[in-house]
Amino acid sequence: MATSLTSHRPALAITLKLSAICLFSIMSALIKATADDVPPGEAVFFRSFFAIPVILVWIAARGELRSGLVAQRPIVHFWRGLIGTSAMGLTFSGLGLLPLPEVTAIGYATPILTLILAAVMLGERIRMIRLSAVAIGLVGVLIMLWPRLGGTTSGQGAATLGAFLILGATSLRALVQIHIRKMVETERTSAIVFYFSATAAGLALLTMPFGWVVPRGETLALLILAGLIGGGAQILVTSSYRFGPASMLAPYEYASMLFAILIGYVWFKEVPTLIMLSGAALVIAGNILVIWREHQLGLERSRARAVSDPKA
């Protein structure tokens, strides 16, 4: 019974992952479409609050409504929620100032920054291949940010601010990844997903004194839809890892650029620049190098276990 829930079904895993990426791209576009009408804190609330019913239905369908919501260490959920909510708020702020493909491209720096933080905070060793990947990725980030540096016009200044907001959000998401590595040792996935949305919705309410508005009908519908879609996307991406390893699914993350370019062009008339695409290509190359190295290390560990196991 348990093995069927974690079986290796690559086609299903890839389908779930790509579906999640598509939904996350649509959710980002919905938030971007409302950026001129509602402040980021209010958008965070709708994104988080309306994801909760979707997540609860998913947990109930898995038969984990009682056991799945037990938090062994509530404080770690709070810190995950605080850091993740801050990242979401910065992202939503940046979405109103930058083209969707550019927001997506800068976000690709998360795995590179996670490697750096893992070395600093967890003491993980970064050898030459990983160090090269970090260097390639950081050069790509610099290329993407370069046109935004030193902007003097009001429009360019806003875009520069947006780029640094997204870079800040990317850094916080990397910190979240480090935090989750420790959380999964004691906490269930369903609890991590649920309490993040609940904490984010609660923290977002604290921004109410800073200019919340009563959204008009169309804007309200887009915000609610963003929350529902975001909750569904969380479930799909979580489910994908039950049918395929992370190393296999990681490269499909970059399909988000195709979705972002398509949605950005059709909805917002945004056309990505050659410089932005060049920088994104370098960041993706760095990430793929990390994925390849992790795969090689996994094979080496498997061979070492096979040699040391007398039953093998």
Rank of each mutant, 00 (worst) to 15 (best):
A304H: 07
G84T: 08
G168S: 10
Y108S: 03
L82V: 14
F45P: 01
L222R: 14
L223V: 14
P39I: 15
L12S: 05
I112N: 04
T238P: 02
V38M: 11
T153P: 08
E300Y: 01
L12G: 09
G162E: 12
L145H: 01
H179A: 12
T104P: 00
M183T: 04
T207P: 01
A169S: 15
S28H: 15
R80H: 08
I14F: 09
R66M: 03
S7Y: 02
Y195M: 09
E42T: 05
E185P: 00
A280L: 12
T199Q: 13
L95N: 02
F45A: 08
A198F: 14
A233Y: 06
G231N: 06
I129T: 13
L206V: 10
G41M: 06
A246S: 13
R130K: 07
L258F: 14
L12T: 14
I112D: 03
N287H: 05
T6F: 07
G140C: 04
G94T: 11
R127C: 08
L97M: 14
R188A: 15
R173I: 13
G68L: 04
A204N: 02
A60Y: 01
F45I: 09
E294I: 14
P245Q: 12
P147W: 07
F78G: 05
I21G: 03
V38I: 15
A11R: 03
L228I: 15
V307M: 08
I291Q: 01
L282S: 02
A109H: 00
I59T: 10
Q72K: 11
N287G: 15
F45H: 02
E42Y: 02
A33Y: 10
I136Y: 06
H77Y: 04
A260W: 03
W58G: 03
L282N: 07
L262W: 06
G162L: 09
T6P: 00
A201F: 08
R73K: 14
F268Q: 13
K32E: 11
S4F: 03
R9S: 09
T186R: 07
L142T: 15
L145T: 09
S256G: 13
E270F: 03
L203Y: 05
P40N: 09
L258K: 00
T207Q: 05
L167K: 02
E64D: 11
F50Q: 07
I291A: 07
T6Y: 09
S278Y: 03
A306V: 08
I26H: 01
D309K: 01
T219C: 12
L249K: 01
G68Y: 09
G202S: 06
L236V: 05
R188H: 11
E64C: 00
L82Q: 06
G230Y: 07
R301L: 13
A221I: 13
E64P: 00
T199P: 00
L206D: 04
V193Q: 02
I288F: 04
L289W: 00
G168L: 13
G41V: 13
S278H: 04
G286M: 05
P215C: 13
L262R: 01
D37T: 08
P10T: 10
G137Y: 07
G231A: 09
G202T: 13
L206F: 12
S239R: 13
E218K: 03
G279F: 02
S256F: 01
L23F: 14
E218P: 00
A71D: 06
L165W: 01
A105Q: 09
S197T: 11
F194N: 07
